[in-house]
């Protein structure tokens, strides 16, 4: 190992190169997520290819692309859930391991077994686990935070309900509450709108706006193009590579979407039509 990351006595992170003296490194509060030359492959087939990305603070970013474009994989790569073939990822200027308490994660709803014997409160409390020590148990303060998070997604009345007895939208809200309980600065959400009712969708959008207004950064995998334009400040068009990344109004153009989706989506023509209409 040539470079080693550690913490000095004062709590600031330092880097040690070639066993030299520890040097402080720049912790960038302004760049919550920075990705350089990221390549991820499953069974030698690349899923993500040479991703370079620098997400500014306090933005609501939508990750958009066709099926198999590597949207979920990108999030998983950042969270360290898949191994990287090349490149590096920094969260607030630090490796994920060091700054993971600042990251909140909302996985896809299908990724867990909803028959699992836990109730809503248990799931939301799990959001606090990352802040607890190895054998520490959630304290009263943690429970209060969990309760507040539930209140924010209007699920407090369901706190003692077993999670199987919730509707899809309610389940998604529970996941959201768990992410809120993580009290993070950077949130990753994997298709939070998949299979939820209209009311929940609105609630989620409102919540995202609120989080953004409080200076949090959100990256949200989204697959519905027409709504993507209204929901997000910035869009990341992804199809194995970064096709485009920038403010929504600049990125949401016919050519770029065409480049992202290829010619294969019928929905594309509808959207393009809408884009044209708005332009004229």
């Amino acid at each position: 190992m040539i470079a080693k990351l550690e913490t000095d006595g004062q709590g600031g992170p330092t880097v040690r190169l070639f066993n030299g003296p520890p040097r402080p490194i720049e912790v960038s509060e302004e760049v919550p997520l920075e990705i350089h030359d990221l390549t991820v492959a499953y069974h030698k087939k690349p899923v993500l290819w040479g991703i370079d990305l620098s997400v500014p603070k306090g933005k609501l970013v939508g990750i958009v692309g066709p099926n198999g474009a590597g949207k979920s994989t990108l999030i998983k790569a950042v969270m360290g859930l898949v191994s990287l073939s090349s490149g590096w990822i920094k969260i607030f200027g630090l490796p994920y391991k060091t700054s993971r308490t600042r990251v909140g994660y909302v996985p896809q709803r299908e990724s867990v077994d909803w028959d699992f014997p836990v109730n809503v409160m248990d799931v939301v409390l799990m959001g606090r686990y990352g802040h607890l020590g190895l054998i520490q148990r959630p304290t009263r303060a943690d429970r209060d935070i969990a309760r507040e998070s539930l209140e924010k997604v209007k699920m407090l009345p369901f706190a003692n309900r077993q999670i199987a007895n919730l509707s899809g939208g309610q389940q998604q809200r529970v996941f959201l509450a768990r992410a809120l309980a993580q009290e993070s600065d950077l949130y990753f959400m994997d298709e939070p709108f998949a299979g939820v009712d209209a009311a929940t969708e609105t609630a989620i959008v409102t919540l995202m706006q609120e989080l953004k207004d409080r200076g949090k950064t959100l990256l949200v995998v989204h697959h519905d193009l027409p709504t993507a334009r209204n929901y997000f400040d910035m869009l990341l068009l992804l199809n194995m590579r970064v096709v485009a990344f920038g403010p929504t109004e600049q990125v949401f153009t016919h050519d770029l979407l065409q480049a992202t989706y290829g010619g294969r989506l019928t929905i594309l023509s509808e959207v393009a039509h809408e884009v044209k209409q708005r332009a004229t």
Binding site: L81, T101, I135, Q182
Partner: peptide
């Protein structure tokens, strides 16, 4: 008893548990 929390969260949602550093 000691690691109930850890066993619970990894059993329920392994991806989330890993992202939270378990």
């Amino acid at each position: 008893l000691l690691f109930y929390k850890e066993f619970l969260v990894t059993s329920f949602d392994a991806g989330f548990a890993r992202s939270a550093g378990f």
